[in-house]
């Protein structure tokens, strides 16, 4: 390649911007061409001179400190702001989730305790030699039996054209509060219906859908100031069917 063509690439050569192949070719040319080599040397010297002379102005220590302080403060502020943007909602989420999990866990524990207690009552009743205090399939016999024994009254459903059969009733206590326990039979399975005075919001959040626990199915709801529980070793659909009858009657 002619010197004129190479000289156009000398800037890129000394700036390290040529491809490896081109740089090698030009390097070979420079070793054999004193004119181009002198020009390349001059450019390298100019580069060095400018680099050396160009690093000249230094900021005063006061100015450096002033900018460094501002940048540090701004970075800190923005990082704190950034931290707040992330951390405050994160902390809120954490607090809420902890509170929720504590609440849910507390509610679950309370519900488990109550359901456990009711399951015990149900099992104890079935195991008892005298499972019911009033033996009757007639609601008009059973309901009056509770008068004067508990501080409330309740309605019982008609069971004609259903598979449920009323066995009888007895007094039950839960947390020192007297209530009614009614025994129903469904295809050789016994179910207990517990009726207590409603304690208000304490049990309000409990799911009214059938819930399985301790191998029993539970359903609970509140109506007209009373809290109803249905417990049985039957399916959720069966518990739900009895619950519906009671709801409609109450």
């Amino acid at each position: 390649m002619a010197c004129e063509l190479w000289s156009g690439k000398l800037d890129a050569y000394v700036d390290g911007e040529l491809s490896l192949m081109e740089a090698n070719e030009l390097g070979t040319h420079l070793r054999g061409c004193s004119s181009c080599a002198a020009e390349a040397l001059e450019r390298v010297q100019t580069k060095r001179s400018v680099a050396d002379a160009g690093r000249y102005f230094e900021p005063s220590s006061e100015f450096r400190k002033k900018i460094a302080t501002k940048v540090h403060k701004s970075s800190k502020k923005s990082s704190i702001r950034g931290w707040q943007i992330v951390a405050v909602p994160a902390a809120l989420v954490l607090i809420i989730s902890l509170a929720m999990s504590f609440y849910v866990s507390r509610e679950r524990t309370k519900r488990e305790r109550v359901y456990g207690e009711l399951a015990d009552l149900h099992v104890a009743t079935l195991a008892s030699a005298t499972p019911v205090d009033v033996i009757s399939s007639d609601k008009h016999t059973v309901k009056p039996w509770f008068q004067g024994k508990i501080p409330f009254t309740f309605n019982l459903p008609e069971l004609q054209s259903t598979d449920f059969e009323l066995v009888g009733g007895r007094l039950a206590y839960m947390g020192q509060s007297p209530g009614a326990q009614l025994i129903y039979r469904l295809r050789k399975h016994e179910l207990s219906v517990f009726i207590f005075q409603d304690r208000g919001p304490e049990m309000a959040s409990w799911a009214s859908d059938p819930t399985s626990m301790l191998s029993f199915t539970f359903e609970t709801w509140a109506k007209n100031g009373l809290r109803y529980f249905v417990v049985g070793d039957v399916s959720g659909a069966d518990v739900d069917a009895l619950s519906k009858l009671l709801r409609d009657a109450g």
């Binding site: 160009g54 900021p59 460094a68 940048v71 990082s79």
Partner: peptide
């Protein structure tokens, strides 16, 4: 990297360039 980490090492060079 924060702004501080990226910018402050370039402070002297930026000042030199600005003064030129």
């Amino acid at each position: 990297a924060t702004f501080e980490e990226l910018s402050m090492p370039l402070f002297d060079q930026l000042y030199n360039f600005a003064h030129w």
